[in-house]
Design a protein around this nucleic acid. Structure first.
Lengths: 187, 187
DNA sequence: GACCTTCTAAACCGATCGGTCTATAAATAG
DNA sequence: CTATTTATAGACCGATCGGTTTAGAAGGTC
């Protein structure tokens, strides 16, 4: 069955990948329509506010996803189990290092000036959620916070290097190292 | 004395900051001329090949700088002393987290496809140089390589988070942690 | 001083930019 | 079925894009 019409959630996901690959400025309308196979009419039907609205909706979509799949699970009963699952979720979300972090990419150039809050919140909430789990696992507060920050820093750095080196393996190595580090720190 | 003419090294440095702040796609000619105060005529006088040549020259300039200021010093006599100075050079180059890594930013979007080699080499050489110093400080090869990779990953991640959180302190904390980690690992 | 090279200024170019609009097709409700 | 809503297609718009050109100013050499 050939698809004839799209629905908004599809449109958000499709456009999101274009922004992720090309960045905010690089994601021109011609690239968006070419890569998503959506016509200009469809794109502006779903996002009357243009690129700004697309990016805002994409970030909201990412936010929702991370809250339900990454942050809330970190609040579940067994914190060590929760953290272990976070590494799996992270590896899967970033496709073992083949997919970059859209929010991280936005943070690096002037796109940050457009969306300072969602960008800041994304990282802040991730660190908070992980820090909370570490605290419940027995880490005193200041160290828990520092370890959580170290983990998120490592994830972002590994994504950058994986792309830069054209070698996704560095992402897997970094996740394994960080996992180990948080486990022994908590032991 | 008001400056009337520029020379090429000045032009490279000025244009580099625009690319660093806006990324390759975001650095439009109008932004370049506005922010550098160079006229379009001047810009194309220095870079007849346009944006592509500007970016290539900027990366060559960065490469030279890193070789003389970061990589070669890591080969000097006392490896621990050399590594200690690397942290200072890193902090100073990235302005304690206020300046982003142009090469890292290029790696994240499709700009990478334009310049895969210089981007890959930049990180590869940094890791190699640091790994060599760690090895000379007594670390067996596989761990030296892993620690060097961890350090460069951490630097990149910290730059991303510093920008994302609008809080440069995370960069200083990360450098301090990595410095400590490499010192104890080598002890 | 004359001469020559280097650098600047800005008008100008076609192509592409983000965005609008109108007509129509597809899906849904009655 | 008809009526209405929702989504698609693409022509079209002014603005900006990256880049070219030409004329002249600034700076060095003798």
């Amino acid at each position: 069955m050939v698809r004839t019409v799209f629905e908004k959630p599809d449109a958000i996901a499709l456009v999101a990948e274009v922004f992720r690959e090309l960045g905010y400025e690089g994601a021109s309308m011609s690239e968006i329509t070419a890569r998503t196979k959506l016509s200009k009419g469809s794109v502006y039907h779903f996002f009357p506010g243009g690129k700004e609205e697309m990016a805002a909706e994409i970030m909201a979509h990412i936010d929702t996803w991370f809250v339900t799949e990454m942050f809330r699970p970190l609040e579940e009963e067994d914190p060590r189990e929760a953290i272990a699952r976070m590494w799996e979720t992270t590896d899967s979300y970033f496709r073992s290092g083949r997919r970059v972090c859209l929010i991280g990419a936005f943070a690096l150039d002037e796109t940050r000036e457009r969306f300072p809050r969602p960008i800041r919140d994304y990282f802040h909430r991730w660190i908070s959620a992980l820090s909370g789990a570490l605290a419940r696992a027995g880490k005193p507060q200041p160290e828990a916070q520092a370890l959580a920050e170290e983990a998120v820093v490592g994830i972002q750095g590994a994504l950058t290097l994986a792309r830069a080196l054209g070698d996704e393996a560095v992402f897997g190595r970094t996740l394994a190292r960080l996992k180990q580090r948080l486990e022994t720190a908590v032991a």
